[in-house]
Design a protein around this nucleic acid. Structure first.
Lengths: 153, 153
DNA sequence: AACATAGTTGTTACATTATAACATTACATA
DNA sequence: TATGTAATGTTATAATGTAACAACTATGTT
C-alpha cells in the first residue's frame, strides 16, 4: 500500500507543504488539522471519515464527527486533500503547489490511489465541454481498476 | 428542466427501451421497477433515492428504503440508469442500447444532466490509464458547471 | 494588562444515504 | 398442485454528513 519507496518521506513532505501553504496564506494549521492530514497520509489508500474519527478518538477524547469533518473541509478547501466521490473517502493531494484539474487511478486490489494531472486528458475534457457549450466548473474523474504492481502478481 | 422538447416522449421511449431490454434478457420489469424508472425519468435532473421513496410512499404504502434501493440496484445493474457519485443521485440512461463509457455534464443552475459518450474523450482516458499501466475497469466522470441554456440567460 | 474580535473547537442533536437479515408473497414450470 | 426461485415486505441498523449554539483560544488594539 505504499507505492512510493520510503513512505515516511512522503508524509513528511506533505506536512511540510501544508505548513508552507498555510503560512503563505495566513491560515492556521492547527494540531487537529495537522493530525487529520497525517492520518490521511498514513498510506496512499483513500481514508474514510469515520476511520479518521476512530483514530482521533484514541488520542483526543472530545473528537466527534464535526471535529473530523471540519478538518476535512479545511483541508479540501485549501487543496491539501481530495475527496473521492466514488468511494466517500479522502486522499492526500500529491502536488498541492501546482494545481490544475486532477484525476485519480484507484486500484481495487491494493487500494493505492495515484493522482494524475495530464495536460492531454484535461484538454480532452475541456474540448468536450466546449463542444456542448458547457461552462466547466468542477470535474470529478475517478478510474478504478488494477494498478501495475497488482497486475504483475 | 426538460431540455428535450416534448418530455413525455422522452420518458415513453426510456420505458420502452427498458421493456425491450428486460424482455430480451429474460428479466422481470415489475410494476415497482417500472415505476421507479418512471419517477427518475420525470425530468432530466438527478433524482435522490429518498425523493423516489417519498413519491412511492404515496401510492404504495409498504414502500421502504430497501424497496427503492433494490429497484435502483436492478436498474443500475442493467444500465437503465446511472448513479452520479458526486451528487448521490440517479439519472435515466439516455442510450441503454449502445453502451460504452459515459460521462455527464451537470448544470448547477437548472440541474439538467446531459450524458455524453464521446469517442475522443474515452480514448484520452484509456490512453492515460495505459500510460500508467493501469487496467481500467470503471470510470466516473462528472463535470458540473453551467449549461448552454442557463449561460444565455 | 484588559479588551474586542474572529476563528477554532466542544457538544448535542439530527439529517441523509444505504444495507443486513429474515419473513412473506408471487411467479414460472414440472 | 407442488415446488423452487426471484421479488417484495418488514424491522432494524449502519455509514456518511450537517446544523446550531456554547466555550475557548489566538491575535491585535487600547
Amino acid at each position: 500500500m505504499s507505492a512510493c519507496g520510503e513512505h515516511d518521506a512522503c508524509t513528511e513532505r506533505a506536512l511540510q507543504w501544508a505548513e508552507q501553504i498555510c503560512q503563505e496564506q495566513g491560515l492556521r494549521f492547527t494540531t487537529l488539522r495537522r493530525r487529520v492530514l497525517e492520518i490521511i497520509w498514513a498510506d496512499h489508500a483513500p481514508t474514510k471519515a469515520y476511520d479518521i474519527l476512530a483514530q482521533l478518538e484514541q488520542e483526543h477524547a472530545s473528537a466527534k464527527p464535526p471535529t473530523v469533518y471540519r478538518a476535512l473541509h479545511f483541508l479540501l478547501e485549501h487543496k491539501l486533500i481530495h475527496k473521492l466521490d466514488s468511494q466517500n473517502a479522502y486522499v492526500g493531494c500529491s502536488h498541492p503547489l501546482e494545481h490544475e484539474a486532477c484525476y485519480f487511478l484507484i486500484c481495487k486490489r491494493c487500494h493505492v490511489v495515484v493522482e494524475c494531472c495530464g495536460r492531454a486528458l484535461d484538454q480532452a475534457i475541456s474540448d468536450s465541454a466546449i463542444a456542448h457549450n458547457f461552462s466547466r466548473q468542477k470535474t470529478t474523474l475517478e478510474i478504478s481498476g488494477e494498478c501495475e504492481a497488482c497486475l504483475q502478481q
